Amino acid sequence: MAARTVLILLFDDAQSLDVTGPAEVFAGAALCQGPRPADTYRIRTASLDGGPVRTSSGLTLVPDHALADAPTPHTLLVPGGRGTRRPDPRLTAWLREHGPRAPRLVSVCTGAILLAEAGLLDGRRATTHWAYCDRLARDHPAVEVDPDPIYVRDGNVATSAGVTAGIDLALALVEEDHGRDTALTVARHLVVFLRRPGNQAQFSAQLSAQTARREPLREVQHWITEHPDDDLSVESLASRARLSPRHFARAFQAETGMTPGRYVDLVRLEQARRLLEDTSDGVEKISRTCGYGTPEAMRRAFARTLGASPAEYRRRFCAPGTRTPGRRPSESRTS
């Protein structure tokens, strides 16, 4: 099998991690192949004129090519960053002409804005960094913008949310191209999750809630995340924080922006979704592991928040080896 060329576009004020994160994943996959690295990925970078670019962090990157001389890629990757706010028209024109020729088109963060400017997302479902989803939808009404997932696949086009989501997407592509073992080896080397599924919300429970200012409340937040199957009643959590239940409930909501009960619900739901997606454990076992107690309680939580039963959710996003692609169920963002 011939190596897949991954061409990464470079431009001034690009986000450096949008470039280097996916590049490290693809490079790691090549290293995993031992004496046959040429069978995996051939990574190349290119800027408009072939000259160095200065990223938004001040890091200078030296490309391999000018865009006019760049090899035809299998995977064309467009990073995000401040440089996408007022893109060079020549870059947009190049994407408009050459983007459709790539068998796989990928953006990280606000790189989706460049793809949209070039008309490459029209009629497609896409995402970008949560802070720019409204702008993408407003400026490009032909794009179906989904602000929730960390990445979205629509045919041969894949768009992802901010920074680390580009690593998640790159790992998913490696798993698709070379199997789970290779992707797992890369993930272990980079000390990241093998795969946060693309349908996972950009806001996890920990990001949806603010981090409490006071140490006892922060410790409680961490305890909830690590022990979803424990007694997480207000009384128990208040005792852990050494506060009265009434004082604890008021302070937790004031400092995190949500009630203790809502935070517990989000943590349990997030854990249950991950286990349904990544394991073959039965619903009864998962309901116990995540603190629901019974499959019926877990079913009610899924129906209330995701509009789907655990069994239906698993059919759409099933465990490795039996995975079938699907759309993410709608999810309430209310707290």
Results as ranks from 00 to 15, higher is better:
192 V>L: 13
242 R>F: 08
189 H>E: 05
215 E>S: 14
186 V>I: 06
215 E>R: 15
235 E>C: 02
233 S>P: 02
231 D>W: 07
181 D>R: 14
259 T>V: 01
197 P>L: 06
195 R>E: 14
241 A>E: 08
234 V>R: 04
214 R>K: 10
230 D>W: 06
208 S>R: 12
241 A>R: 05
236 S>K: 09
184 L>D: 13
245 P>C: 07
234 V>S: 10
250 R>V: 10
196 R>H: 10
249 A>V: 00
187 A>M: 11
184 L>C: 09
249 A>K: 13
241 A>T: 03
269 L>D: 07
250 R>E: 12
198 G>Y: 04
250 R>H: 14
225 T>F: 02
217 L>F: 10
193 F>M: 08
264 V>K: 00
211 T>V: 14
257 G>C: 08
185 T>N: 09
254 A>N: 13
194 L>D: 03
266 L>Y: 09
185 T>C: 11
264 V>Y: 00
265 D>G: 05
187 A>D: 05
183 A>M: 01
270 E>T: 04
221 Q>L: 08
261 G>I: 01
243 L>T: 12
225 T>D: 02
199 N>W: 12
219 E>Y: 00
249 A>Q: 13
260 P>I: 06
185 T>Q: 15
258 M>A: 09
208 S>H: 12
263 Y>S: 04
211 T>A: 14
235 E>A: 15
208 S>Y: 09
184 L>R: 15
265 D>A: 12
222 H>G: 05
264 V>R: 06
265 D>F: 02
212 A>H: 11
271 Q>I: 07
189 H>P: 00
201 A>I: 00
220 V>R: 10
239 S>I: 00
189 H>A: 14
252 F>P: 04
209 A>Q: 12
232 L>D: 05
221 Q>Y: 04
239 S>W: 07
216 P>Q: 02
225 T>E: 11
266 L>I: 03
211 T>R: 15
224 I>N: 00
219 E>W: 01
188 R>S: 11
191 V>N: 07
247 H>G: 08
188 R>A: 05
202 Q>C: 04
181 D>V: 15
263 Y>R: 01
248 F>Q: 03
238 A>E: 14
238 A>W: 09
233 S>W: 02
221 Q>G: 10
202 Q>V: 12
236 S>D: 04
182 T>W: 07
262 R>E: 09
250 R>A: 14
249 A>R: 15
244 S>I: 03
267 V>E: 05
228 P>A: 05
206 Q>G: 04
183 A>K: 02
196 R>V: 13
271 Q>D: 10
242 R>V: 13
267 V>Q: 02
236 S>R: 08
196 R>D: 04
263 Y>V: 02
258 M>F: 00
229 D>S: 14
247 H>I: 11
231 D>R: 09
187 A>V: 13
197 P>T: 10
244 S>T: 15
191 V>P: 06
268 R>T: 03
197 P>G: 08
264 V>T: 06
189 H>D: 07
240 R>P: 02
200 Q>T: 13
187 A>P: 12
198 G>R: 08
233 S>R: 04
221 Q>N: 09
180 R>N: 03
209 A>N: 06
191 V>E: 15
225 T>M: 05
196 R>P: 04
244 S>C: 03
242 R>C: 07
192 V>E: 08
189 H>F: 08
235 E>T: 15
212 A>V: 10
208 S>P: 00
237 L>C: 01
261 G>L: 06
227 H>V: 00
251 A>L: 14
226 E>A: 08
